[in-house]
Design a protein around this nucleic acid. Structure first.
Lengths: 188, 188
DNA sequence: GCCTCGTGTTGGACGGCATTCAAGAGGAAC
DNA sequence: GTTCCTCTTGAATGCCGTCCAACACGAGGC
């Protein structure tokens, strides 16, 4: 794709806008970032943004697609590493983007496009968690529900800004419970 | 309180505004409810609302205070009933007010007043969950972390509009894990 | 009965927001 | 050189939350 110079320019500009949007959303929040302000950052008239994106929600989806894709790519490289390192890494990633995550959940209430993207993103992330559980024999037979629970807990932890100490306590308890489940399975 | 007729009128009007705000927030969402619209519902000029409430977030907090207080009151009446009935009831309550819950989490990012109220509300709710866990000997020694996890899961379930079937699977898994923990404690 | 004063209420304005429209610039293709 | 599509823009629209200054009203003191 992007055969002609024209299409190349267009894609570059799109990416530039998305990069600026990600920075501003993270720094000032979604509602705190006006299209005006974003346009000024990219040195362009506000209306120009609407040639590249249908509306502000489309911009949010564009930003999030790249964030999640980058996250899943990084995960591929971390496959097979220690479980608690993976958990810590995932919580760190969620933490850095917590304002974006909160915004997606808010906009998903209103925009069906955001909701649709949010749902598929959850599916992808939870598939990855399920795979990790399965490869370790954890939550045997309940991998799907366990993955869902884990994603809810991860979102809760970052949304509520739990301290490092609390994060550790929560993760430890969860791991403790999942290990008991393994032992229980072994006995039966 | 509310000694004079004057103060009685004021309190009545305040309550009337809060009742209308709750209805509109639930029906059209927080952002979908303009001060204009709310004022029209109460048959009053938009500015009048600002005599009773500092700003829109104060209105949100006022609505939520009443919702949570009513919920905790109802909980007192349900103390000692079966655990799964309590869980189902709590999820139902969260479900009915899910748009309000989502809004609080969104505004808490921006408004320190909303954040402060949100934090104390969580504390109250989790204290109640802890008490239930303790009275049943569940999550022995990890009651605080377990209560936190349970509140995160409850919020996740309603925010992500899990189906009844999925809710059942998630609750069942969690209960299963907590019971294993009890058996483990008994053996040691 | 009148006046004062604090309690409510209002019209009108302000600045900011996302978004739209119609007009235009610029360059590639013929 | 002209056409035509891609991209950009200034200006406007209709919302929004909030503020200010003026005004109504009724209770309490005289």
């Amino acid at each position: 794709m992007a055969r002609t110079n024209r299409e190349l320019d267009r894609d570059q500009k799109r990416e530039e806008i998305l990069r600026a949007a990600r920075e501003l959303f993270l720094e000032h929040g979604y509602e705190g970032t006006s299209m005006q302000r974003l346009a000024a950052r990219v040195k362009v008239a506000p209306n120009t943004l609407y040639w590249y994106f249908a509306d502000k929600d489309a911009l949010l989806i564009g930003v999030m697609k790249r964030v999640v894709q980058a996250g899943l790519g990084e995960y591929e490289r971390r496959r097979g590493t220690a479980l608690d390192a993976q958990v810590r890494w995932m919580l760190g990633l969620f933490w850095e983007t917590r304002t974006l995550i909160a915004t997606v959940h808010n906009r998903a209430q209103v925009s069906s496009e955001v909701r649709a993207w949010h749902d598929t993103a959850h599916r992808m992330i939870e598939k990855a968690i399920e795979a990790e559980l399965r490869s370790r024999g954890l939550a045997n037979g309940h991998e799907v529900a366990a993955a869902r629970i884990m994603s809810f807990i991860a979102e809760g932890v970052v949304a509520h800004q739990s301290s490092k100490a609390e994060q550790t306590r929560i993760v430890r308890l969860l791991m403790h419970l999942l290990r008991l489940d393994v032992d229980d399975g072994a006995l039966r």
